[in-house]
């Protein structure tokens, strides 16, 4: 399907048509001076694009731990305020189980349950 780019060449072709024909060895795009010039620019663009794609810039090494701290804070929050069916519920279920075992007020029980990594929430509360 033809796409009008708004960049119509004096010969009537547009840049997208030249792009689609870039692999062809003959035809109008190779013989027409307007299309041939655009084709050369597109070849440079293609090479620079491949170079851009090879650039494997990495985020800073602390990003994973920042994300996971936020996720764990979320898990702790959902323990205090159980969200109705929206998001992971494992903490809440553990808290309920512990409440049953200890037979205390769930808000107090929260202090003795562990998070999903097995660390105590007391320990994590300060972080």
């Amino acid at each position: 399907m033809a796409v009008t780019s708004g960049h119509v060449l004096p010969c009537g072709c547009d840049v997208e048509q030249v792009w689609e024909a870039i692999g062809l060895s003959g035809g109008h795009a190779r013989s027409c001076p307007h299309c041939a010039a655009v084709r050369e620019s597109l070849l440079v663009l293609r090479a620079a694009t491949a170079e851009l794609a090879r650039d494997q810039a990495e985020p800073s090494s602390g990003l994973v731990s920042r994300v996971m701290s936020a996720v764990r804070a979320e898990v702790r929050r959902s323990d205090v305020l159980p969200s109705p069916g929206d998001g992971p519920a494992r903490m809440s279920m553990r808290a309920v189980a512990m409440a049953g075992d200890v037979g205390e007020d769930p808000m107090c029980v929260r202090l003795v349950v562990t998070d999903v990594d097995g660390r105590s929430l007391d320990h994590l509360n300060g972080t």
Binding site: V3, T4, S5, H7, V15, E16, L42, V44, L45, A48
Partner: peptide, 13 residues
């Protein structure tokens, strides 16, 4: 995409 490609190709001329 077409507009982007045309503009980028021009910059690489």
């Amino acid at each position: 995409l077409a507009r982007a490609r045309a503009q980028l190709a021009e910059a690489m001329a």
